[in-house]
Nucleic acid binder design. Structure first.
Length: 419
DNA sequence: CTAGGGTTAG
């Protein structure tokens, strides 16, 4: 039985509408999946990937769909469903393939189910899956994502000897991240020595992790000395990630400084990315310079060649609301919907309330219609009261009725198709 | 076929 069917049978899952999905590239798959907010819908897409056994569906897309389904279930607090879904993979023949099992460990990690991740790793011998750094690194990542940082060094110094492999640069990268998260960049720096002794390559990524941790601790001098040393001794070259750490460090200050550092990047031949520009947008916004912030946003795609991400939209919508520029906020919101990167619920609630308060009822209603499609019912429940107060309650009722009907019709189709 | 830089709430 497919994982999806197993879960449906266990839970009598409701199923929403969807067209048949034929992914071609990973980026197309991602943009489609980003628009899927209903966890059951996400599960259905995942099962269509696995059931079709289509060679044009890359393993990366399947993994992305699995993580997305699990994320959506977590958003609805359906943790026992996550367990049923992921555990059902263990009876499939592919479970003896390490990448397949590793993706289960990763999926447990992204939703903070660290106990299930380590249990899965421990079961590998019984399941007949060989252990290399691949599953090991998946486990270490799961610990970091679940924020159980102190388990990382424990496993790091236990499993490689026990199972006969050597930690690689990724393993060390995660170990360094864990020490940094535990507030100990000093220990992380000691690991660099260990890497050198073992002949493991030290890359710019691990160094930026440490640099960031030093800045976070407030030791700017130490951070800059550390980096200077790495540049002169290890010949380490700054990249966009390095500059983004520096931008993080200064973006609470004057916009001129942020702008200057971005110019410096351009002069150094390092192209600032969306994250870099988000710092500039944030900096302008908190300084009340919304026109400048909007100008950066408007230039982003055309002049800078960067796509705005969900954070870009969130920052702008929030600060535009703060300045009571709700109609501009609404325009930005519409663009975020168009590219499938809408801000989270509370930011949008802020905007709807502002629009209604200023009498822009058409826009407020349009937003509610969109939000009803994009957020889980649990979140929308608290919504009813607010809409009543704003005189928008009927919008909600209409919407619920129409989706209700669609669900019944589609469920019928699914039953027929799966028998 | 993996690690960082963002992802808090306001």
């Amino acid at each position: 039985m497919s994982p999806y069917l197993a879960l449906r049978r266990a839970r009598h899952l409701s199923t929403a509408t969807s067209a048949a999905i034929k992914p071609v590239t990973i980026s197309q798959t991602k943009s489609k999946l980003r628009n899927v907010y209903d966890p059951d819908e996400a599960l259905k897409i995942y099962s269509s990937f696995t059931a079709a056994n289509d060679p044009s569906t890359s393993p990366a897309s399947t993994r992305y769909a699995q993580e997305l389904a699990v994320r959506r279930l977590a958003k609805s607090h359906r943790f026992s469903d996550i367990k049923n879904f992921l555990e059902s993979h263990k009876s499939l023949p592919q479970i003896t393939q390490e990448p397949f099992l590793s993706s289960l460990i990763r999926s447990y990690g992204v939703v903070g189910m660290f106990e299930n991740a380590i249990n899965t790793y421990n079961e590998m011998t019984d399941l007949g899956t060989p252990r290399s750094t691949l599953s090991f690194n998946a486990l270490l990542s799961a610990c970091v994502q679940s924020k159980v940082f102190d388990r990382v060094p424990v496993y790091f110094y236990e499993f490689p000897a026990k199972f006969g492999f050597s930690p690689d640069k990724f393993s060390y990268g995660i170990l360094i991240k864990a020490y940094c998260e535990m507030g100990s960049p000093e220990t992380a720096m000691e690991k660099l020595k260990e890497m050198e002794e073992k002949g493991v390559e030290i890359g710019v990524i691990s160094l930026t992790t440490i640099l960031h941790a030093l800045y976070k601790k407030g030791s700017s001098d130490e951070a800059e000395n550390f980096w200077h040393e790495m540049v002169t001794e290890k010949g380490c070259q700054p990249d966009v990630g390095y500059y983004n750490v520096k931008l993080w460090h200064i973006h609470g200050g004057k916009p001129e400084a942020v702008k200057g550092l971005i110019e410096e990047m351009n002069n150094a031949g390092i192209k600032p990315d969306t994250i870099s520009y988000n710092y500039l947008i944030t900096c302008y916004s908190v300084n009340g310079m919304m026109d400048e912030a909007m100008k950066v946003y408007n230039d982003l795609l055309k002049a800078k060649g960067c796509n705005p991400n969900a954070a870009t939209f969130r920052i702008l919508v929030f600060h535009l609301c703060k300045k009571e520029r709700f109609m501009t906020g609404y325009k930005v919101f519409k663009q975020s919907v168009k590219v499938g990167k809408i801000p989270e619920f509370n930011t949008l609630k802020y905007l709807v309330e502002g629009l209604a308060k200023k009498g822009h009822m058409t826009e407020a209603k349009a937003m509610i219609r969109t939000m009803n499609k994009k957020f889980p019912p649990e979140l929308l429940k608290a919504w009813g009261k607010i809409m009543e107060e704003l005189g928008l309650a009927h919008v909600d009722i209409e919407e619920v009725n129409s989706t209700g009907i669609e669900k019944v019709v589609d469920l019928d189709k699914i039953e027929k198709a799966s028998t």
